[in-house]
Amino acid sequence: MKDTALRIADFKDSIFGVISRLARENNAVNLGQGFPDFDGPEWLKEVAFRKMQEGHNQYAPFQGIVGLRQEVSNYYKKFYSLNYNPESEITITVGATEAIYVVITALINPGDEVIVLEPFYDSYVASIKMAGGIPVPVTMHAPDFTIDRQELEKAITPKTKLLILNNPHNPTGKVWAKEELLDVASIAQKHDLYLMSDEVYEFLLFDGAKHIPTATLDGMLERTITVSSAGKTFGLTGWKIGWICANEKVTRACRLVHQYVTFAVSTPMQEAVAEGLTKLSDYLPGFVSLYKGKRDLFYTEMKNLGFEFAIPKGTYFMMVPISKKTDLKDVDYAMKLIQERKVATVPPSAFYLKSTEGEKYLRFCFAKKDETLRAAAKNLQGL
């Protein structure tokens, strides 16, 4: 038998899948993979069931049902004063992960370079490599996870075509300040780059933090491709409903890829999310309050265990420094905690290509039942 494709020769199993498997094998409390261990709102599940009963069960239009594209357009206008044409500038995808793959495949030629700000969501690099592109890392430096403008400028060459930004940021919980975004935006404009803005945690903000979509910055609407999804917002990650918002030219390219990857997205779930988006204003205060309570609970538990770090302002992740607890690197310490303390976390060095800063941290997900968080804290006592 001939070998499989060289483009995936250096691929490994996703760290998220590996950690979840080890958590099951060791009967560990899983604070690794980023999904809630409780369900999203009952009213939205009831909407989905009703949509199935009403007969919305066949293929949807490949670009997404009209109603959902319209409601995505509506909320961008209502919350951010952004005007996206639902017919020509919004595409529905199988979650944000497919959206990321589609955008990169639509834009990147073999040999093109893509700036990734590390630590990064691991599918960025995989998608770049599958497109034949070259990922170029620029480090967000701990403990505040800021970028150095000069370092970013140095990483850009005539081959650079795309810069990827994640805000609010997984895995650090950072919410980018406007001044930081303006810095990145000015560089993208100076070097005529596309910018893919992954904003799936756009509504998970705490302590008065504000989400600023990159596309709202002066001069950035045309060159920004915004990716988001309903999975994080409604706590229903298994529904896998995401979207891409971009100018008409880029949208056309993305749709050409999307139609040959998945063609269509789950019809009843699209119908349900479309209805759910109409209720965002009423839903979001309770949603944010729920996760803020979990963040505060787990942060207090971690502080009581002797961990010292700044409380995250967004997402449902905490990057927790471990150097005061161990001389081990993140991977070895994560394995130790799974096996000996029955707590699963994600070693963030998997999210770096250049820097070794990730070896000094573990990523914890606090999107869990309160009893799950307390059980994890109890298992970690005496570290």
Score class of each variant (00 low, 15 high):
3 D>F: 07
7 R>N: 10
7 R>I: 15
9 A>V: 07
10 D>N: 11
24 R>D: 14
29 V>R: 00
29 V>T: 08
34 G>S: 12
35 F>H: 14
36 P>K: 10
38 F>C: 08
42 E>F: 12
44 L>C: 13
54 E>K: 15
79 F>T: 10
89 E>K: 05
90 I>S: 01
99 A>M: 06
102 V>A: 05
103 V>S: 09
106 A>P: 01
111 G>L: 04
125 V>T: 07
131 A>R: 02
138 V>L: 05
139 T>M: 12
140 M>F: 06
144 D>K: 15
145 F>V: 10
149 R>Y: 13
149 R>E: 15
151 E>H: 05
163 L>K: 06
167 N>C: 03
173 G>S: 11
175 V>S: 01
182 L>T: 09
184 V>W: 00
190 K>E: 01
190 K>W: 00
191 H>Q: 09
193 L>W: 07
196 M>I: 07
196 M>E: 03
201 Y>T: 06
203 F>M: 06
208 G>T: 06
210 K>W: 04
228 S>R: 04
241 I>M: 12
243 W>A: 02
246 A>T: 08
247 N>W: 05
247 N>L: 09
251 T>E: 11
255 R>C: 00
269 M>D: 15
272 A>T: 04
277 L>K: 05
282 D>I: 07
306 G>C: 08
312 P>E: 05
325 K>H: 13
332 D>M: 08
334 A>H: 13
335 M>S: 14
337 L>F: 02
346 V>Y: 02
346 V>K: 05
348 P>G: 13
349 S>P: 10
358 G>L: 05
358 G>H: 10
366 F>H: 12
377 A>W: 02
379 N>P: 03
